[in-house]
Simulated scan of single mutants.
Amino acid sequence: MPDSTLSSRTVLVTGATSGIGYETSRQLAERGAIVLLHGRTAEEARAAADRLVAIAGVDTDRLCTYAADFTRLDEVEALAHKVVAEHPHLDVLVNNAGIAAPERHTVTTDGNEIAFQVNFLAHYLLTCLLEPALTSDPGGRVVNVSSSLHRTANIQWNDPNRARRYSRLAAYAQSQLALTVFAADPRVTAVSVHPGICDTALMPLYAHEGVTPAEGATNVVRLCDPAIEIVNGAYYDRAERVEPAPAATEDRTIKRLNKLADLLIGRAA
């Protein structure tokens, strides 16, 4: 049955074709939201929508599909422009797409370490470009699906691509710290959430077992609900609001990260 607080709200979920992103999309659609499903390819996005209709019984009219490979910033930019053109009012953006950093140091065609780009820079660019849609009416919000591993991280300001000293765990943690810091940017109201250790492709970074993606998704969907009051920059560990790593709320770090991100995505003045 549609939930009155989420009914007809428009939500874009990145990385919606599997894991927490897919389950978040399912729960949002079941509660009456209009869900924009993002996948790496059009085929993957369409397949996810078809599964939601066939298996979960979601109304096809509540689903729209979009594609962009986050290892290519030009595709992220094209995605944002298409979403704004088709949905000039966007209630929620769920920045969920993510990858585990590979064993070997890998750089995208844009010149960025792949985990830093997919997990943070692509979402930074997407959020900045979607700002007009998210702020077209009061109440627009961003939910960053982050990680408790952000507490172990530090941002290598002079070598964000970690070309000199690479560790897959450190690279992944750095991307999650950056995403958590970005939630405190004042341009759009945003929060970060560690949804719990879930049985997804990222689980080997944490442990040998975890809860189901559906259980993790409930912690994301909760923060999409306008009935839940949020404070910009807040960080949640599952359903509980807790303090993030100290760097995540430092004005100096926020400004420095924005400057770095603008430089790496080619938006620097």
Rank of each mutant, 00 (worst) to 15 (best):
residue 58 V to L: 04
residue 248 A to K: 06
residue 144 N to K: 00
residue 143 V to I: 15
residue 22 Y to Q: 09
residue 121 L to F: 08
residue 13 V to P: 04
residue 116 F to T: 04
residue 11 V to S: 07
residue 182 F to P: 09
residue 242 V to Y: 04
residue 111 G to I: 13
residue 179 L to R: 00
residue 54 A to S: 12
residue 113 E to R: 00
residue 29 A to E: 05
residue 209 E to V: 09
residue 52 L to Q: 06
residue 267 R to L: 15
residue 37 L to K: 01
residue 87 H to F: 13
residue 188 V to W: 00
residue 206 Y to F: 15
residue 18 S to F: 01
residue 71 T to M: 12
residue 47 A to L: 09
residue 245 A to Q: 12
residue 194 H to Q: 13
residue 60 T to H: 05
residue 104 R to C: 12
residue 262 D to Y: 06
residue 150 H to C: 12
residue 253 T to C: 13
residue 97 A to W: 03
residue 42 A to Y: 02
residue 168 R to T: 14
residue 232 N to M: 04
residue 243 E to F: 08
residue 90 L to F: 08
residue 185 D to M: 09
residue 111 G to A: 13
residue 37 L to P: 02
residue 134 L to E: 07
residue 203 M to I: 06
residue 269 A to V: 13
residue 268 A to K: 06
residue 145 V to F: 07
residue 136 S to W: 01
residue 22 Y to S: 05
residue 259 K to V: 06
residue 168 R to V: 11
residue 102 P to R: 02
residue 168 R to F: 14
residue 189 T to D: 01
residue 34 I to F: 08
residue 126 L to G: 00
residue 205 L to P: 01
residue 203 M to R: 10
residue 43 E to N: 10
residue 128 C to L: 13
residue 92 V to W: 10
residue 195 P to T: 07
residue 245 A to F: 06
residue 171 A to S: 14
residue 208 H to N: 15
residue 48 A to P: 07
residue 115 A to L: 02
residue 121 L to I: 06
residue 68 A to T: 09
residue 144 N to P: 09
residue 258 N to R: 12
residue 132 P to M: 07
residue 76 V to A: 07
residue 33 A to E: 00
residue 88 P to T: 01
residue 93 L to V: 03
residue 155 I to V: 12
residue 84 V to N: 13
residue 236 Y to V: 00
residue 141 R to T: 03
residue 53 V to N: 03
residue 200 T to L: 13
residue 113 E to A: 00
residue 58 V to T: 00
residue 108 T to I: 12
residue 123 H to Y: 05
residue 155 I to R: 13
residue 239 A to F: 08
residue 83 V to W: 00
residue 76 V to N: 10
residue 18 S to V: 08
residue 129 L to G: 07
residue 157 W to D: 06
residue 21 G to H: 05
residue 192 S to H: 01
residue 103 E to Y: 14
residue 39 G to R: 13
residue 93 L to G: 02
residue 139 G to Q: 05
residue 63 L to P: 00
residue 260 L to F: 04
residue 26 R to H: 01
residue 147 S to H: 11
residue 235 Y to L: 12
residue 1 M to R: 14
residue 49 A to F: 02
residue 87 H to T: 03
residue 226 P to Y: 11
residue 241 R to F: 07
residue 27 Q to A: 04
residue 119 N to L: 03
residue 153 A to I: 01
residue 124 Y to F: 09
residue 208 H to Q: 15
residue 147 S to N: 11
residue 21 G to D: 04
residue 157 W to N: 03
residue 255 K to F: 10
residue 91 D to L: 06
